[in-house]
Simulated scan of single mutants.
Amino acid sequence: MHTFPDRYSDTDCRSTQQRGTKPGPRLARRRFSLSLLGLTLIGRNINAWAQSDAGYPSRPVEIILPFSAGSAADAISRLCAQALSQKFGQSFIVENVAGAGGVIGTGKVAHLPPDGYNLVVASAATVVMAPFLYHKLPYDPARLVPIGTMGDSPVVVTIPAKSKIHTLAELVAAAKAAPGKLSFGSGGSGSAAHIAGEMFQWKTGTHFTHVPYRGVGAAVPDLVAGRINALFSSYPSVRAMVQAGSLRVLAVASHRRSDLVGMNIPTAAEAGVKGYIQSAWNGLMGPAGLPAGIVNKLNAALNEILHDPATVKRLAGMGMVPIPGTPAELAKRIADETAEMRALTKIVKITKN
Rank of each mutant, 00 (worst) to 15 (best):
H194P: 05
P66S: 04
C80W: 01
F208S: 09
I64M: 08
G289N: 09
Q82F: 04
Y56E: 10
L65N: 15
R314L: 15
V295K: 09
S123I: 03
S68I: 11
T345S: 13
G272I: 05
G24R: 04
V220L: 10
G116D: 13
V61A: 09
K181Y: 03
Y117K: 08
S68N: 14
I76Y: 07
T11K: 14
W281T: 11
I195Q: 13
S254G: 14
R214Q: 14
A161E: 14
H111F: 01
G55P: 05
V348Y: 02
L137Q: 05
R314F: 03
R257Q: 15
A130W: 02
I228T: 08
K136H: 14
G107W: 01
A225C: 01
S186T: 11
T126V: 08
T345H: 08
S279K: 00
H255G: 12
D222C: 07
G105P: 00
G272V: 06
R314Q: 15
A161I: 01
Q201A: 13
R256V: 13
G20I: 03
V220E: 10
R248S: 06
A244N: 05
A316L: 08
R7K: 05
P324V: 11
P66G: 07
E337L: 07
I159D: 05
A130I: 01
Y56I: 11
E340Q: 15
P5D: 15
S68R: 13
S191N: 09
L168C: 10
I147V: 12
E340Y: 00
Y139G: 03
G262R: 10
P5Y: 06
P141S: 05
P5S: 14
K162G: 13
L231A: 01
D336P: 07
N264E: 15
K176I: 03
G105H: 02
G205N: 10
